[in-house]
Write a protein that binds this DNA or RNA. Structure first.
Lengths: 194, 194
DNA sequence: CCTATATGAGACAGACCTGTCTCACTTATA
DNA sequence: TATAAGTGAGACAGGTCTGTCTCATATAGG
C-alpha cells in the first residue's frame, strides 16, 4: 500500500496553508472551511490526513518548530565560538521581526488559546520553547558550569520572548537591539565571574 | 435620569465575571451565553451595558490594567530608591506567578487573539504594555540619562514578559529568580557606566 | 400612587462551527 | 486493462456563535 507522492505533497500543502491562516487570523478564529478553501482541497481530504482540527494544529506547530530548529542548526554551524552561536540566534530574531508578514510568535499565540497543560497543543508549545532554551543552555555549557548555563540561558530566553512581544507591537528594531545589548552584558558578567 | 446604584454594580459584576472566563478559557472560546450564565444576568442586561463582545473585552482589559497600575503605585510608594521601586515590580510578578489561579498574562493572550493593530483590543494591550515599560523608564530616569533609561527599561520589560511566559509553562519560580538576577546585573553595569 | 428605568427569561435570526457521509471521478500501480 | 487509493464537491447533522427582540416583572423617585 504505497502512499502516492501527491498525497504527501497535498498533506504538506494543507499544513502550510493552515500555518499561514493560524498565524494571521488565529487558531479559534480560523475555520476548517477557510483552510480547505484556501488550500483548494476537499474537506474529506483534510480529515483523512488529520484526525481533527486540534491534530492539524499540533502538526502545524511541530512542522514550524522543526523548520526553526533546522535554520538555527545551519546558523550555529557557521559560528565558531559559543558567544557567536548565541549571537546568530539573536540575528535570526532580528531578521524575523523585520519581515513584512511577521505576526508574532505562533507558539506564544497557541499558548494563549490553549492554556490547559494537558492539551496536546500546549505540550507542542512547551516542546518548542524548551528546545530553544535547551539549545542556548547547551551552547553556554561550553563556557560555564551547567547551573550557571541554565540560569543564563533562561535570561536570554526571556529577553528573546519579550523582544518578540515588543516586535508584535511594532517595536521590533529597538527591541532586538536592546535585547542584544542586555544579553552581551549578562554574558560579559558571567564570563568575568568564571 | 439617575443611574441606579444596582446598575453600576451589575455592570462591574459582568466585567469581573468575564475577566475570570477570558483568563481561564480564552476570548474567542468564551461565549456570551457562558458569561451571562456565570454572571447570572440576562443577555439584554449585558448588551445594554456594553456595545458588543469586543467592547466588553476592551473594558475588561482596561479595568484589569487600572487595577494593576494601582497595585504597583502602592508598592512604589513604600520603596525608597529607584532600585527598590524596580524590585517591587519583580516582587509583584513573583507573587502573581505563585497564585493558584495564575493563567498567564491576559494582555499577552489578547494580543495573540487580536493581532490587527487597528483593533481596539490590540490598542488596549498596547496601552497596558507601554504603561509598564514607561513606568520602569520613569523610575530609572532618576538614576540615568533618558536614552539609557529607555533601553534599560526595555530590557527589564522583556525579562518580565519572558518570565510570564515561562511561568505559564510551570517554571515561574525559577523564571522570576533568573529574571531578577539578570535585572540586577544589567542595572549594576548601568550604574558602573554612569 | 405612578411613571420611568432596569431587569430576567427566553424566543429568534442568521451565520458559523466541527466532523461525517455519499457519490462520481481521476490516477497510479500491478 | 483492472484494481484500489486518493480526491473533489457538496449535502448534512448537531451544535454554537453574536446580537436583536418581546414581554412580564420589579423597583426607585416624584
Amino acid at each position: 500500500m504505497v502512499l502516492r507522492a501527491d498525497a504527501a505533497e497535498k498533506r504538506q500543502h494543507i499544513v502550510e496553508t493552515a500555518y499561514g491562516l493560524f498565524k494571521r487570523v488565529g487558531f479559534h478564529a480560523t475555520g476548517i472551511d477557510r483552510i480547505i478553501s484556501e488550500a483548494a482541497v476537499a474537506k474529506m481530504t483534510m480529515y483523512r490526513h488529520f484526525p481533527s482540527k486540534d491534530g492539524l494544529i499540533v502538526e502545524v506547530l511541530d512542522w514550524r518548530a522543526g523548520r526553526f530548529e533546522r535554520q538555527l542548526d545551519g546558523l550555529a554551524e557557521a559560528a565558531t565560538t559559543p558567544q557567536r552561536k548565541i549571537a546568530t540566534i539573536f540575528d535570526w530574531y532580528g531578521r524575523w521581526f523585520e519581515r513584512p508578514n511577521f505576526h508574532g510568535c505562533l507558539f506564544q499565540h497557541a499558548l494563549a488559546e490553549f492554556g490547559d497543560p494537558e492539551h496536546p497543543v500546549f505540550k507542542a508549545v512547551a516542546r518548542q520553547k524548551d528546545g530553544l532554551k535547551r539549545r542556548m543552555q547547551e551552547i553556554l555549557e561550553a563556557r560555564m558550569p551547567a547551573a550557571q548555563a541554565e540560569s543564563t540561558a533562561s535570561a536570554l530566553f526571556m529577553l528573546i520572548e519579550g523582544a518578540t512581544l515588543l516586535a508584535q507591537m511594532g517595536q521590533g528594531k529597538a527591541a532586538i537591539e536592546n535585547a542584544r545589548a542586555a544579553a552581551e552584558r549578562i554574558l560579559a558578567v558571567r564570563k568575568a565571574l568564571r
